[in-house]
Design a protein around this nucleic acid. Structure first.
Lengths: 239, 239
DNA sequence: GTCTATATTTCGATAGAC
DNA sequence: GTCTATCGAAATATAGAC
């Protein structure tokens, strides 16, 4: 199976080798230039983190080698260890990045809007993230499946608070007769699982789609199907 | 993180050490006893495969060591290699086992029954499997997320045929006015993702449940919630 | 069939020249 | 800040005694 992965990666490496740019001018090399150095530092760190997200998603934490991350990033392996002391440090950064993106999307579940619009917007954003950040979703899924060794605190903290808060609003909607009486937790789980499925199981969906990725139209249809079924399922309708 | 996993495993190993039984009587050791030997062989193989499913689910393919599988199975590492030539061979067997179980459950989607009963039974069985075989579900999820290096043929073959067949029946129900007009593929994806979420993300659900696993009553409530929302969502009702 | 000892490979991480 | 060479640890797999 190792050979299989290497076959896959060689093409990714080739792809990544294209985007390299030269931003430095000719300057006296002995003179320290703090801003440019910081810029290059954050630039390389970003390269490494983007590569790492892809490699962790495809190979898992243990299967991801620093050599592979370096190849995908287009840097020598030693440079990766120059910017990040350990592989675990890279992994932590990747996982935290995804969590931040998701929590920002979670704020789109705006309970001021009323149930139909709040749920529609949240599902739309979650589906958009599954398309734009599929590898982030996969890394998150693997992290949770392995017992959340890194983000357990986040689960018990911010995620639990957010879920409790949104659950209370849903129960208020139910009490007001605005939607069906269902357990808010299971509604949230259904939204999370269904939307993230299009990222985590994207390979299976692509296979059942004849081996080709979804077109823009198919993504629109998927979003509408998900919203239609879930909203009608709780006594609402798509807005 | 390696240390984290080892901490987890030591408790599992201890648990597994309990169930050992002695089935052999005192017999002449030089005499070959085909049936008993075959029995012991398949017995140990079963021990290893059960341990491997757990280890692969928690640590991933690369993170799962044969030493750990041996410890969880309660056997010396060399014995594991005596029964299975390579780690990949163990992994293949684990993945195939899960696929067989799932395909058997898939036959519960009996289109002779009519839409409501067929969907209800299928969702019920998928939820039961998420509870009884959570680690199998996780191994499958990881396999697909990593590009299905082992079961790509199965995806393109039996799974695609099954999905196409059931999709045609759903479209017939729609044409007969028995349920809402929705894309069958997205309905199937919703059923798969939602039911498997209770296995794959079981750790997250447990955390949001106050750190304790679901009780029997909570599982029943979860099954009912999933069935209620999905069936109403496509114009049906739980039977 | 079981189990100890080990061969071989691979990977994470670092030293040190430039 | 970059990169070659390499150390040390860990893992797969096997050899060979029992």
């Amino acid at each position: 199976m190792t050979e299989f992965f290497l076959t896959i990666w060689s093409s990714i490496v080739a792809t990544c080798l294209i985007g390299q740019v030269f931003s430095g001018k000719n300057v006296v090399s002995t003179e320290p230039i703090p801003f440019r150095q910081t810029s290059k530092r954050s630039q390389n760190q970003k390269l490494i983190l983007e590569a790492a997200e892809k490699v962790f998603a495809e190979a898992g934490f243990a299967g991801a080698t620093t050599q592979l991350i370096a190849d995908v990033a287009g840097l020598p392996k030693a440079n990766v260890h120059y910017y990040f002391k350990t592989k675990e440090e890279i992994y932590r950064r990747v996982v935290y990045n995804i969590f931040d993106i998701w929590m920002e999307a979670a704020s789109a579940f705006d309970t001021e809007l009323g149930p139909s619009e709040a749920l529609c917007r949240y599902i739309d954003i979650k589906m958009d993230l599954s398309r734009s950040h599929p590898n982030g979703s996969r890394v998150w899924a693997a992290e949770v499946m392995h017992g959340a060794p890194i983000i357990q605190d986040y689960l018990e903290g911010r995620l639990k608070e957010w879920s409790t808060d949104r659950g209370l609003h849903i129960e208020r909607w139910i009490a007001n007769g605005e939607m069906d009486a269902i357990d808010p937790a299971h509604l949230l789980y259904m939204i999370w699982s269904t939307t993230q499925h299009y990222a985590d199981f994207g390979h299976q969906i692509e296979t059942l789609n004849g081996g080709v990725p979804y077109t823009d139209e198919q993504w629109q249809a998927a979003k509408l199907s998900v919203k239609t079924i879930i909203l009608k399922g709780v006594g609402l309708s798509v807005v």
